[in-house]
């Protein structure tokens, strides 16, 4: 008889690994977003994805549901992810401000043209 992997997949609890894998996907998507979007806001969205990927890891490592042992981050994980969320909010605000300013000054939000630092 052929065992479908899927059947077994749903009957067992997931572990930290699975969360970390999802985090990895989010993180990679975010990085790629940053690397490929020419729109400054797109880059910003990439950053949000990256932060979320990281957050997911913190939560996973801190969770007792996924792994109950002494090495768990415990509450620290959640606290750190809270800080991350808050800082992300702040960062979004500032970055938006920068983007708007840049837009005002250059009539563009193409990051490829923001290369004035190039010597």
């Amino acid at each position: 008889m052929i065992h479908l992997p899927l059947a077994h997949l749903l009957s067992e609890p997931v572990g930290v690994s699975h969360y970390v894998m999802v985090g990895a996907v989010l993180f990679t998507c975010g990085v790629l977003c940053m690397a490929t979007k020419r729109n400054a806001l797109g880059v910003l969205m990439g950053i949000e994805l990256v932060l979320n990927g990281a957050n997911l890891n913190f939560i996973a490592f801190g969770s007792h549901v996924l792994r109950n042992d002494a090495n768990s981050l415990g509450l620290d994980g959640q606290l750190i992810s809270m800080f991350v969320i808050v800082l992300a909010a702040a960062e979004a605000a500032v970055a938006l401000a920068i983007a708007l300013n840049y837009y005002n000054n250059h009539d563009s939000i193409d990051v490829d043209r923001a290369d004035e630092l190039l010597g």
Binding site: M34, V43, D112, A114, E116, G119
Partner: peptide, 17 residues
């Protein structure tokens, strides 16, 4: 080395990766 300093945000990200 000067050529690496393109000032291009997205390339910097690529370098980080």
């Amino acid at each position: 080395l000067r050529k690496i300093q393109t000032g291009n945000l997205r390339q910097y990200i690529m370098f980080i990766v």
